[in-house]
């Protein structure tokens, strides 16, 4: 009896957490980064990512339905056929119709899932003509980027350490710990970007969830992906293949800016020279405007900083 109470207590606690988590998720969005207590995928900013989130939701709810169905059957069985309720067991151990049904119906469900699944997979691999091409090379433990269309636009991207991000946040600059980098990948809004990914040493993986993009950087191979970001802002990703001790500490940051900002940034990068990194950073910082990127600030528990 006491054990049952304890169990209900635990289930209640978990349930409450889940419910509050779900409502919290509805309250604010996770663009380009996770949110505290987030339940679902990061919010999409490309059409591929939107399709991904849609497909994920469809499959997810189908799986929930299947799980609840199994749970219901188990509950019925436990209540109707426990030894007190049913002292004499039957000996039925065949029913051809049932066995055919539970083979054919799952096949039908899988076909229903497979059709949009293949469509989405092939869409991910349908490359529109690129407006720009960026080469991302994984290293232990940072990324290096090379803008293939412009000579001399190449830089390394290191994670900012905790004290550096803390200092930035103290100055009311949005700089999430373990995600912020010194040199972000800057791309223009609504342009098709091809990303070629490789590695100089061990396998790394370049990923941005809000773009639904992830591809391994394998040394000796070049793999590719593409995205077309439809919202201004900064979008973070993390290295997604264990690559040694600082695997957790080599994030990816893609900053989507307006065309004119991008053009100015390119000029700064092409000019190069000492201080180019700082000039580029200052340029981006100055271009950040509040209104259409203010969502994160509204979130409870989010840093009270200027939004990206």
């Amino acid at each position: 009896m006491r054990l049952g109470d304890k169990v209900s207590g635990w289930l209640g606690a978990i349930g409450a957490t889940l419910v509050s988590g779900l409502t919290a998720r509805v309250a604010f969005a996770g663009y380009g980064r996770g949110d505290p207590w987030q339940i679902g995928l990061q919010d999409p900013v490309t059409s591929i990512a939107r399709d991904n989130v849609w497909f994920n939701d469809v499959v997810f709810w189908m799986m929930v339905a299947i799980t609840l169905f199994v749970m219901a059957l188990l509950l019925i069985v436990m209540i109707r056929f426990n030894s007190k309720a049913n002292p004499t067991p039957s000996h039925t151990h065949h029913n051809t119709l049932l066995e055919v049904a539970w083979t054919v119906i799952p096949i039908a469900i899988l076909v229903v899932i497979a059709i949009p699944s293949f469509k989405l997979l092939y869409a991910q691999y349908s490359y529109p003509k690129p407006d720009l091409t960026i080469k991302a090379t994984g290293n232990q433990w940072y990324w290096s980027y090379d803008y293939a269309d412009h000579k001399g636009v190449a830089f390394d991207s290191y994670m900012l350490k905790d004290d550096e991000t803390q200092a930035l946040r103290d100055k009311h600059v949005d700089a999430p710990r373990l995600l912020s980098v010194d040199n972000e990948v800057v791309v223009p809004l609504n342009k098709v970007v091809h990303v070629l990914v490789t590695s100089k040493d061990v396998i790394h993986s370049w990923a941005i969830l809000s773009f639904a993009v992830r591809t391994d950087g394998v040394p000796g191979r070049v793999s590719s992906t593409w995205f077309k970001a439809e919202r201004l802002g900064v979008y973070y990703g993390v290295c997604s293949e264990l690559c040694g001790k600082d695997h957790a500490f080599m994030p990816i940051a893609v900053r989507v800016v307006a065309d004119d900002v991008y053009a100015k940034w390119l000029d700064v990068r092409k000019a190069g020279g000492k201080g180019a990194d700082d000039k580029a950073r200052a340029l981006i910082q100055a271009s950040i405007s509040v209104p259409n990127q203010a969502v994160a600030a509204a979130a409870p528990g989010a840093p009270t900083t200027q939004t990206p």
């Binding site: 505290p36 990061q42 373990l178 993390v238 264990l242």
Partner: peptide
């Protein structure tokens, strides 16, 4: 169970530390 949420939200595996947003789960 909460690890499903962490993964969907973007926490990668095989890491000793993570972005602050993942602290709750």
């Amino acid at each position: 169970f909460p690890q499903h949420f962490l993964g969907a939200a973007g926490m990668q595996r095989r890491v000793p530390d993570y972005a602050d947003a993942f602290a709750g789960w």
